[in-house]
Design a protein around this nucleic acid. Sequence first.
DNA 1: CGTCACCTTGATTCCGCTCAAGTGTGGTGG
DNA 2: CCACCACACTTGAGCGGAATCAAGGTGACG
Lengths: 244, 244
Amino acid sequence: MQTLHETSALAPSACSRHAGQCSTCALRQYCVPQGLSNTDTDKLQSVIVNARAIRRGETLFRVGDTFDALYAIRSGSIKTVVTSANGRDQVMGLHLGGDALGLEGFDDGTHACRAVALEDSSVCVIPLSTFERACRETIAIHRRLLQLLSREVVRKSTQTMILGTLRADERVAALLLDISSRLTCRGYAGNEFNLRFTRDDMGSFLGITLETVSRTLSRFQAKGLLQADGKLIHILDFDGLRAV
Amino acid sequence: MQTLHETSALAPSACSRHAGQCSTCALRQYCVPQGLSNTDTDKLQSVIVNARAIRRGETLFRVGDTFDALYAIRSGSIKTVVTSANGRDQVMGLHLGGDALGLEGFDDGTHACRAVALEDSSVCVIPLSTFERACRETIAIHRRLLQLLSREVVRKSTQTMILGTLRADERVAALLLDISSRLTCRGYAGNEFNLRFTRDDMGSFLGITLETVSRTLSRFQAKGLLQADGKLIHILDFDGLRAV
DNA sequence: CGTCACCTTGATTCCGCTCAAGTGTGGTGG
DNA sequence: CCACCACACTTGAGCGGAATCAAGGTGACG
């Protein structure tokens, strides 16, 4: 509903369900655009030096860390957080398997947010130097990077829209529908999922309090729009949710 | 105060005050990073095919327009706007002389927002095809583009922070301080400026109503923080404004 | 001179915040 | 194994900040 675009360049792929079997699958999923040849893909794979596992609650990078690598989520989910001057945390984004991470670092060579794993996760680490070489050698990879950065801008615009114009219940609905559509793109069920955000995370992300999130979910449940058992969300009435 | 970074890669330049004398000055200002040689700069200039004038209220590009050129503001100021599904407008950004525009188009090849001139303005038009060639030939230009895109992401994060965590008066203060610091970067006076936003624009941008903006400015004036005569803003007490 | 766009200020309403109490639930250690 | 605790979630009561509705003022412009 609030999505500016149906941005699903991610080809649905069984890969994401068997991450252990394919170390480069996130990149394959994410960075391979239409029209990228097999040899190009091979080049891309060659730049991935290693994969890294992070456990729930652990931090992948912090504000001010030198930006020396890009990340692609292989499995799990990661939130990005910024702490404001007055000390309040703001959840900036929810990143699922296949998403890129850390692109804001190009600005000044340091990361501008903190990335924290919401569950035990695994990420591909792509050193910046090798990636830059790949960009220069392969124009399709270069274009893909621009696309990813641009998509990040559009995503953030959607977020601004949500925070700027919607009421609390509309925000919650927008978040659930967004997550649902992103999971669908990845080949997962879009109507039933395990939300890794706490109520507090959701509230911060949506610019409302955790109590309001909880109340809103209860109201949605009472209206028969969804079934919420803690973090397990089962959407029953998509149209109803879209209608606020 | 709410700025995540002191993002002032724009070298203060007399150029911006004499825009008419230097057709490529916006690009010179904006796209020339440290370490870009003169020959590289010449290459950059060669890709600018023309400059375009747009009058107050006119539109530079619309949502859905094919993304075939980048823009750099030579003089004037431009707002970007998105209309949501329910028909409400959300002002997404305020772009001043020297700023790049239209970078969100890389995502899917079309513009994701509408760009409207807030006053009679002039922009450099850089055709995408020639710019892509320049990126390939000159790595510094390529890096600069990534930096601009990344900066856009960081800027939007700041906006999300403002909309997500601040109260109305804090938002207004944050906007004024942001504009002030950006003008200072460009070599203009930061304490007195003509705000091209209407109260409605400000409200939309900050996620509050125009009445609240007006009341807040009146209150700030009563407290001696600033002098507001319509669009003309004179900041008297920066520290007071920073302290909310 | 009337129209229109923009701004200011007041009165009232209401949505969401704050404070508070109570309910699971998973993890830890005695 | 169970007592305990920390943490996340739910729900209620009351308050307050900002929205809404409304009226009036100002300046630009045909």
